[in-house]
Amino acid sequence: MITFSQTTIKEIEEIRRKYPTSRAALLPALYVAQREFGWLSPEAYTAVSDLLGVPEAIARGVGTFYAMYRNKPLGRHVVQLCTNVSCMILGAERLVDFLKNKYGLEPGGTTADGRFSLVIMECIGACGTAPAMLVNDDFYENLTEKYIDEILEKYR
């Protein structure tokens, strides 16, 4: 059984107060749970639904609908690389191959050491500075192979 830390419980209660109903607070609360546990495991859903007093089925329905919730365990760091039009024109697909060959990182997959997971994104709004990616919540643009090496070095 997993449980929230006291700070997180406070944070979720704080979130709850901003909304008229418990269900309305579900999206941000799930996001906090994902941050705390790394992904939304069945236990994480239980914890959130208990804390907010929302039926578990409703919490799961919401959490599996939106793309930014992770419903399977991912690596310690999540690389989200855009391959949409602008990024593709500027070589994002080569970068996908690069990640695969150098780091063993397949789209949708996780490295053997659990360090990185790769998620292919559809446009993160950085067309002017493509190709672009997110590592966790950090934003990187004008990517090259060398630059990616430097970036990933920061995430152990």
Binding site: P55, A57, I58, G61, T64, F65
Partner: peptide
Amino acid sequence: GASAIAVISR
């Protein structure tokens, strides 16, 4: 009023 089932995934 049981809310035991929901549409899961998309």
